[in-house]
Amino acid sequence: MKDGPIRSGGPEVTSIARIPVEGSQVAPIEQLADVLYKLPGGALLLTTVENVLNWARASSLWPLTFGLACCAMEMMQAFATRFDLDRFGVIPRATPRQADLIIVSGRCTIKMAPVVRRLWEQMPEPKYVISMGSCATCGGPFYYDNYSILKGIDTVIPVDVYVPGCPPRPEALIEGVLKLQEKIRRERRLSRRGT
């Protein structure tokens, strides 16, 4: 930058960079910098686009309201009174077009597998999958002597977080969501080589 850093240590903001706003007016960045200057710590908020995107994605995970079997009851309980997943920004959406997380809650049959696959395909990128419970993870108690249950939902769609349990407690599901948020914050979608 030929005009030097935006903030050079003193309280005065001396930048002359301008950002265009609607119409032909240009707003001086001083106004923006004034806001930023008042942040605790007295520093400008410097970050990458990627971190901002990851922060936004992790803090507003919208799952699809999609229940398969028993685990869906614990999922409902996790959204309800005592556990309240809403406080983590997890608000259920009724259509896959608005969802970016699918919680596969319960056993998935071979008849249901194409439906789950299609729902996952209908979701916009970036999308995440939580496999809730033993049945969705590996077939669980329905593994042996069974002709109708899929041996794990990861044979159909890619899974990000596996939550064990039969069924997992609501706290376990919340832990799974928190782990997924951690994973999203570490993601490198933009700076990854080859993209």
Partner: peptide
Amino acid sequence: GYLHSSVEKMMEHRNYTQCIALADRG
């Protein structure tokens, strides 16, 4: 049939105590 878990067939391969766990879930 989207949630057919073949629990009746599975019970034929379990002893009665194990069937209780299947009756819970299936």
